[in-house]
Simulated scan of single mutants.
Amino acid sequence: MKAIEIISIPVTNQQEAKEFYLKFGFKLIVENPFQNGSNWIQMGLPDGGTSITLVNWFPQLKPGSIAGYVIKCDDLDTTIAELTAKGITVGNADQTPWGRFATVKDPDGNAWSLHGK
């Protein structure tokens, strides 16, 4: 094994979620018809690595149920300011023994932790 390639993010409305993630800083890798009226929407951060797919076809994955995924930032305060300027709500930056973190939630409530200095 080499790496985690794709993480499924459960969403209610794929297009609304796609627009949020584009504003959040992800880029669209591919969007194609998939099954039962859904699309395969795969997105990733500009520097590559693990990507996400916005899913609505796994009944066991409930929209808003994702938490604990961490996105590394060079400068947390700058990232918070940039996202806030785009209209994205970011939680307070909390200092922990293992670094500073702030939370961002997508339209369904899936929570991402931003981590940086």
Rank of each mutant, 00 (worst) to 15 (best):
T96G: 12
T84S: 05
Q15C: 05
I4C: 07
Y21D: 06
I88D: 00
L61Y: 02
F58L: 13
F20Y: 06
G99M: 08
L28Q: 10
N110G: 06
E19N: 14
I80F: 03
I66G: 00
K62S: 00
L83M: 10
T84N: 04
T103Q: 07
W112L: 14
E82C: 01
N110T: 11
A111T: 03
N39R: 04
L61M: 15
I41L: 05
F24Q: 09
K86L: 14
F20Q: 03
A111L: 01
V30H: 07
V90T: 08
K23M: 01
K2I: 13
F20S: 02
T84I: 13
Q42E: 12
Q60V: 06
K23A: 10
D75K: 01
F101A: 05
K62Y: 07
V30Y: 04
G49K: 02
G25E: 11
K62R: 14
L45I: 09
L28N: 11
I6M: 02
T12E: 06
D77E: 15
N13C: 08
V90E: 02
F24R: 02
G25W: 15
K105N: 09
D47F: 08
L54G: 10
S38E: 03
N39H: 13
N36K: 10
E82A: 14
G25R: 13
T78C: 08
E16K: 15
P59H: 12
E82V: 15
Q95W: 06
I80R: 02
W112K: 07
D108F: 07
A17H: 14
K72F: 04
K117L: 12
I9W: 07
Y69R: 03
S113T: 01
N56C: 07
G37W: 02
A17S: 12
I9Q: 05
W40G: 07
G116C: 04
S113L: 15
G116K: 11
F20M: 05
M43A: 12
W57I: 03
K86I: 12
A3Q: 08
T50V: 09
A93Q: 11
K18L: 15
Q15L: 11
A3P: 00
P63W: 14
P33F: 07
G44I: 00
I52E: 00
L76V: 12
K86Q: 09
Q95M: 13
V70W: 02
C73N: 00
D108A: 15
I71W: 07
Q35S: 00
I80P: 03
A81H: 03
N39S: 02
D106N: 12
A102G: 09
A81W: 08
K105P: 01
P59C: 01
T78S: 05
G37Q: 05
G44L: 01
A17G: 04
G37D: 04
F34Q: 04
W112D: 03
I6Y: 10
A93C: 10
G116D: 03
